[in-house]
Nucleic acid binder design. Structure first.
Lengths: 106, 106
DNA sequence: ATTTTGAGAAATCAATTGGTTGCGCATATA
DNA sequence: TATATGCGCAACCAATTGATTTCTCAAAAT
């Protein structure tokens, strides 16, 4: 079983959960109210998120508040970095082309 | 069938393919040489990537060169933006706490 | 003390996934 | 022209996924 950030964000419901608990901790029931699906389904998503180490739990009586481990989102950012560099390079190459066009015109 | 960027990057082999064809266009066979799996398996991944509109094809005789549609990566970046804001806010709140601690000491 | 409520766990199910094998077609090469 | 090569496609298979239902347990509310 693959359990990483990329797996965590692959499912749209899970992405919505992530967005919700990024701002404030929420219980499974409170979360389920935001969706068209059962509490159990949400619970399963939360389990996946837990396995991906994307959430922290806070126990309050019989309620469990889930909050996003927001640091984990940086892993995606880090992976994206390589493409940012490539995009920059492409722009620079484009700049060069435009520059050459300009100077040739003169 | 879900077909979006998040689905595309969920699989590690697909992520590796994406990284490879971000720099330069490659044929399925050339790609397959980088992995422990068959040409057909890679071909299926490329089909998924095509369905996600993550690649452009360039036909050269009987060879097909695949290259990353790098603009698509921005969609991930856009989604990540919301968390950047939250992280910033958290830092600012932390700054405030630190500031209050400082001023109280004085 | 009894009932209600919040939540994880297990069993089950259909759909999807990632992979394989075999095929056919078009383009190169002999 | 005959053969080899690159590639997509379909059929098939085991594993995983996302969801539902049922169950149990602990904590609140009555």
């Amino acid at each position: 079983m693959r359990r990483d950030v990329f797996q965590a964000i692959a499912d749209p419901t899970r992405r919505a959960i992530i967005t919700l608990i990024a701002v404030q901790a929420m219980t499974p029931n409170a979360l389920a109210e935001h969706f068209d699906t059962s509490r159990q389904a949400i619970s399963k998503h939360l389990r996946v998120l837990t396995e991906c180490e994307m959430v922290k739990q806070e126990f309050q009586g019989r309620e469990i508040y889930y909050q996003l481990e927001i640091e984990k989102m940086k892993e995606i950012d880090v992976w994206l970095d390589q493409f940012r560099k490539i995009m920059e390079d492409q722009f620079q190459r484009l700049d060069k082309v435009l520059y050459n066009l300009k100077t040739k015109k003169k």
